[in-house]
Design a protein around this nucleic acid. Structure first.
Length: 843
DNA sequence: AAATGTAGCGCC
DNA sequence: AAACGGCGCTACATTT
């Protein structure tokens, strides 16, 4: 229920009650006239000039945008759907709404609910700001602005998504902070933003309660100008006992550690009751000393190397920084990574430093913003002044240090410390090594394959143009649509947001009517292979250099980054290039080869997610099925009642396979019917049979759905959490949307334990193998190619390269680790292993 | 010219 | 209207 308590201050309560068209005298902007539906002359009793509500006792002053339809009828701000959402989020966080003062930037209603223009905003604030408060001498503790309009009006800023969550100085009240966040109406349109709104409101509450004002401890910033200074600081740090943990950050000319150079390095630490941030150059600039990273024999290089290689280091996304260090001859190892820490704490939000600082160190966010304003958003590191560069570098290292302390504490409180230290960080280090090692590719084969595809493209294009009777750009969505649906007059089966669909499924349907769609499908495939996976040259596109070929280093190795934070499920992501979506076509996978004279060992888990589903649900029949010779066949036999002696053909088996996977992903009978091209009645009956055969599974699924709704999270067998939003809030404003969302989260709560369990099992395998190999042959950037190691992982598949003579031992080690029992469940997953001379098999 | 959004498609 | 979970990359189209 909206709060109906009136302001306690009599004088203001009086005005609030009487705030009708008759006593609102302001005519300073055009809105006084248009604010009433049908215009003021219509005689309708509608309110404009509506001031705020609430006592302001808790010190919170909230600015929205302008009056909406409901507001002008009732004559109170924030009483429509957005108001309900605001009430919900305030009560969820524990801010008493009636004690806050809630008003709008513009106190009238713009016609047809348009956004009030800047002049209207400014006129309204100028004329009503001092009057529209709970009492004339009242001063807030915190101003909260909701949405882009209030942000512009109060702080003269744009881009709410970049400014939200940061505490700025209030221009209106001396010594008061302003926090901005999304407008509740925006959340109604994009419910996935709700957690951010909630976090920001919580931040406001913490601020009001003095529990966390995000104050920064004092820090001594040292910009090292001379060699002597540098040597003194190195001496200080190297002889400190105990050696302080260092948070390290680098600035570089670009993102590629093999091509770009480190420009400056900063180290932040806590020593003798003080925070210190050191920063120095590694690139020549006038009047400043710099450490020359190419002179490996110099004293200063050796000191830095010794320090970094023997200290506990913290990075923010150290995958980036450590690879730079390694390439420059310093084997720095990340002990703590604030990015990975945050990923465990909140898998749903971004994990970049800027975002983390704005979320957890709001005061620093303002400071960081100031630096950005000084140096410009897109500064050229070569042109930046040394002072700005080092200040920026040092502040990032300092913030990383503060985040580190904060996150370690939070991980401990959430029972995630072990998962972080024993699992996530060792995995991160193993992945950085794997990426640095890279995987070798067969350049000639790439070129040959690409040539084959280009020939195919040429031929088929000619055919296409002949059929259509004109040359046209079939890669252009708009031209293709014109040709297919206008010129050829084919029927439209499916629509996208922007017009008729031309996707593969639709084209295959259209192929029954005309030869062109099939040609398009095969042309698209050939081009995709060339553009994305081969040399980027499809013979047509102007832009070359796309494709994996463009990622090869001088030894024909590709160094994809494996991200530990790319998913919400604990699965890895891979980029530049992604190695997780390489075509299964063996011709293509043969492009991936081990180093000269070595072998690949390929190990994969079979049907891991379904096995996990079986044991999580504890359904005896399904456990029986997943432990049988062939799961899909077994399921089919059970469903249809075919005896063990009768053989089952592949097509029938695929039916069972489709339904099994849909179960794990939360798919329904309708989708299955569409996929298989059969009636839904049929697939629905299969679903029924399936549920009846394995009753433990629907039961478990129900319980998962209940679990996330009650607890707000589900937890995997490794203790990884998946947090869910509170849909109760959304349901109040938009019940339909909430129901849709609920179905989605129900499916997630089912899929997450399976997907995350398998992902962390694979992650564990990777980390343990790295650990054991490292004990036999300590890993180092300079000697890595002398020893076997992982080169690739694809969710449930793992690829190693190994010298021939070590292959048997490696296989035994891999098999041993892969068959370790799973936590909580105690069973092991089935795995298979192959020795190969290329990823696509022997050639 | 750069940034953003969309469609489409590759993988598990 | 129907609804299958998790990703990244490409080209094209549109916006700034």
């Amino acid at each position: 229920m909206p709060d109906l308590q009136l302001p306690t201050n009599i004088q203001f309560a009086q005005r609030f009650e009487d705030s009708t068209i008759t006593d609102f005298k302001c005519q300073k902007c055009p809105l006084w006239e248009t604010s009433v539906a049908g215009g003021r002359s219509s005689g309708k009793i509608m309110r404009s000039g509506v001031y705020g509500r609430g006592t302001g006792r808790n010190g919170l002053l909230i600015y929205g945008e302008a009056l909406g339809h409901t507001e002008i009828i009732i004559g109170r701000p924030f009483v429509g759907d957005a108001g309900k959402l605001l009430s919900e989020v305030l009560s969820e966080i524990g801010i008493v709404e009636s004690q806050s003062y809630i008003t709008n930037t513009v106190r009238c209603r713009p016609p047809s609910n348009r956004v009030p223009v800047a002049s209207e905003q400014d006129i309204c604030m100028e004329n009503h700001f001092t009057k529209d408060l709970p009492a004339p001498d009242w001063k807030p503790k915190l101003v909260l602005t909701l949405g882009a309009v209030a942000l512009r009006s109060m702080l003269h800023m744009q881009k709410i998504s970049e400014r939200r969550g940061i505490f700025y100085d209030s221009p209106m009240f001396a010594g008061v902070k302003t926090l901005c966040t999304y407008h509740p109406a925006a959340i109604l349109r994009k419910p996935e933003l709700y957690p951010i709104l909630r976090d920001d409101i919580r931040r406001a509450k913490d601020y009001l309660n003095d529990t966390d004002r995000g104050d920064l401890p004092p820090v001594t910033n040292i910009q090292i100008r001379t060699r002597t200074d540098f040597l003194e600081w190195m001496d200080y740090l190297l002889s400190a006992d105990p050696r302080p943990a260092l948070s390290v950050d680098i600035e570089s000319t670009g993102l590629n550690y093999r091509k770009d150079k480190i420009v400056s390095i900063s180290m932040s630490f806590y020593s003798e009751d003080n925070y210190v941030s050191l920063a120095f150059l590694t690139d020549a600039r006038p009047e400043w000393w710099h450490l020359n990273l190419t002179d490996k024999q110099s004293l200063e290089f050796k000191l830095l190397q010794t320090l970094l290689e023997s200290s506990k280091l913290t990075f923010q996304n150290g995958d980036f920084d450590t690879k730079f260090f390694w390439y420059n001859g310093i084997h720095a190892v990340s002990n703590i990574d604030t990015l990975d820490a945050h990923y465990l704490l909140d898998e749903n939000s971004p994990h970049g430093l800027k975002h983390l600082v704005s979320m957890f160190l709001p005061k620093a966010g303002g400071y960081q913003q100031k630096i950005l304003e000084v140096i410009g958003g897109d500064w050229d590191i070569q042109l930046a002044s040394v002072k700005d560069l080092l200040e920026y570098n040092a502040s990032d290292a300092f913030f990383t240090h503060l985040l580190r302390d904060k996150f370690l504490d939070m991980l401990k409180h959430q029972g995630l410390k072990d998962l972080f230290e024993q699992h996530a960080m060792p995995l991160k280090r193993a992945l950085t090594c794997m990426s640095y090692r890279g995987i070798r590719m067969d350049r000639d084969r790439i070129m040959r394959l690409s040539e084959t595809y280009r020939k195919e493209i040429k031929e088929k294009e000619e055919k296409l143009y002949d059929l259509v009777g004109q040359r046209f750009k079939y890669t252009s969505q708009s031209q293709l649509i014109k040709v297919l649906y206008q010129d050829l007059g084919l029927p439209v089966y499916k629509e996208t947001k922007t017009g008729p669909s031309t996707d593969k499924e639709t084209m295959e349907e259209l192929a029954k009517l005309h030869p062109v769609p099939a040609l398009i499908v095969s042309l698209r495939h050939a081009r995709k292979m060339c553009q994305t996976y081969l040399d980027g040259n499809d013979g047509i596109s102007e832009d070359k250099g796309t494709g994996i070929l463009g990622h090869l280093d001088e030894y024909d190795r590709v160094h994809a980054s494996f991200l530990t934070h790319g998913t919400t499920s604990g699965r890895l992501a891979s980029k530049e290039p992604s190695l997780l979506n390489i075509p299964r076509d063996l011709e293509f996978r043969r492009c991936f080869i081990p180093q000269q004279g070595w072998q690949f060992i390929n190990a994969d888990y079979s049907q891991a997610e379904l096995i996990l589903l079986a044991y999580l649900s504890k359904d005896p029949s399904f456990i029986n099925a997943v432990t049988s010779e062939d799961l899909h066949t077994k399921v089919l036999r059970t469903l249809v009642g075919i005896d063990e002696s009768v053989p089952i053909d592949k097509e029938m088996r695929n039916f069972a396979k489709a339904i099994n996977f849909r179960k794990a992903y939360g798919g329904g009978s309708k989708g299955l019917a569409a996929q298989l091209g059969v009636e839904e009645e049929l697939t629905a009956s299969w679903y029924k049979k399936w549920d009846a055969a394995y009753p433990g599974i629907p039961e478990w699924m129900e319980s998962q759905a209940t679990l996330w709704q009650v607890k707000g999270e589900v937890v995997s067998i490794y203790g990884r959490k998946r947090r869910f939003p509170n849909l109760q809030v959304l349901a109040i404003a938009d019940p339909k949307r909430a129901r849709e969302q609920q179905g989605y989260y129900d499916r997630l709560s089912i899929n997450f334990p399976c997907q995350a369990g398998v992902a962390d099992t694979m992650n564990r395998t990777l980390r343990l193998l790295h650990y054991y190999l490292n004990r036999i042959w300590p890993w180092s950037p300079s000697t890595m190619y002398n020893h076997p190691g992982a080169v690739l992982t694809v969710h449930d598949e793992l690829l190693f390269e190994s010298p021939e003579e070590l292959v048997p031992d490696m296989c035994e080690l891999i098999r041993g680790i892969m068959s370790l029992p799973l936590p909580m469940i105690g069973i092991s997953l089935k795995s298979e292993m192959k020795v190969l001379s290329t990823w696509g098999g022997d050639v």
